[in-house]
Design a protein around this nucleic acid. Structure first.
Lengths: 230, 230
DNA sequence: TAGTGGTCTAGACCACTCA
DNA sequence: GAGTGGTCTAGACCACTAG
């Protein structure tokens, strides 16, 4: 005799919601009622409905009960891509070339993003990512040597700066910003596109305990599409 | 006497992982060991570690134990924005204006995205979203009348097409694609930018039971940034 | 203030998979 | 075969909040 699982209960309730049994914003039965209906413990129902709440299908409030979300949240679980994997996933050969790597005084933009105060130098790194030998994406990065002292001596011939940093400073938090920008002369030359062409920009700043580790921007040419599902 | 919560256990274990107590790919103690250490039931530890696994911090396998992820997944829970809320969140007054609304034969791009076969007409809708009266984003949308017959008579003066569709077809699935494109003459004129300017494009296709409901693209001018955190 | 979800416990059995 | 996570149960108490 197979028991009723939280998975079963979750899908059963989801189906009833999708069927329109309860309208938008309407209250659904409480956990005990479902437990009796499906012949399982309340704990099991709780886990099932909690999963639906995590998905944004329903919202729960103590005493207020569980309601179908009036305006369903449209959420996506998004995985920040690693350029090498993007290239290899498309069946092409990945390679990268470091264009510049030097200590440099950060511009005001970098200072703002990393929340720096004093005026020391940071590492500046420009990397061109190649797919079958052709430009795939351009990476421009500032690295804070105060947080990652080993970066000066890092061997980046085999792995990218990003992978090196992830391995060295594994569990940091971060922010991401997406936008579109026009290619300036430098970026256009490195990516082999025309100046003024639209580029897809993904900017990431990584933090370890309130200190900015690195901020980088990846520029993709206009034929790039970043797809995911809801 | 306060009990140890799954939240406490989760943060305690997270701190130990971040501190480097176990290296990347290394195995951490099993649930019973943690339960004894923290003086709680194994169920509580299970829920705590399961949450860390959902975050991508660790990976779990029966008999294999729980390991720190060798290359931590960088995942973000991303909420697809509603244009009106974006505008209002920035403290500006939202408004929208429908530029075109007509039955039209879909182009090959729309046919491909929506997986259509026959050559019927779809509804074509162009909407300009305004913030304090100035163009904020341009929406170009195809709607499948076979799935949403009521759309022909929908009153879109008060709410946007998107909100109307979400209320009418609430629990559908979808795909999203992000890219950068150059503004063509039509889009440039509606957004009041120069032709060729970089636009941030967010394309969404929505499905209900294998049938495409609608596909739309939102174009934002180059000063737009979509930010979120990891 | 009473109803609802949030969570813990202790014990149990099962499913997967490594060795 | 045996160790580990996956899950269910029954009961209990708590925290929040709608009415």
């Amino acid at each position: 005799m197979k028991q009723t699982t939280h998975h079963d209960v979750r899908e059963a309730i989801r189906a009833r919601i999708v069927s329109g049994e309860w309208g938008l914003g309407e209250r659904i039965p409480d956990e005990n009622a479902f437990a009796e209906q499906y012949g399982c413990a309340r704990t099991t129902v709780n886990r099932a409905i909690r999963a639906l709440a995590d998905e944004g299908i329903v919202e729960r409030k103590r005493k207020g009960g569980t309601r179908v979300r009036p305006m369903p949240l449209r959420q996506a679980q998004l995985t920040i891509p690693i350029v090498r994997e993007q290239v290899e996933a498309s069946g092409r050969r990945y390679d990268h070339r470091i264009v510049r790597r030097e200590p440099r005084t950060p511009d005001s933009d970098a200072i703002g993003r990393m929340g720096l105060s004093a005026g020391g130098k940071l590492w500046w790194l420009e990397t061109i990512h190649l797919a079958d030998g052709r430009p795939f994406a351009l990476e421009q990065r500032w690295v804070n040597p105060a947080v990652v002292p080993g970066f000066a001596d890092a061997d980046l011939s085999g792995i990218s700066a990003n992978e090196w940093l992830v391995r060295t400073v594994p569990f940091s938090t971060g922010t991401v910003a997406l936008s579109a920008v026009a290619a300036d002369g430098d970026r256009a030359g490195l990516l082999q596109v025309a100046e003024g062409d639209a580029l897809f920009a993904m900017e990431r700043t990584t933090w370890l305990d309130e200190q900015a580790v690195t901020t980088m921007t990846l520029y993709y040419p206009a034929d790039f599409r970043w797809e995911f599902s809801l």
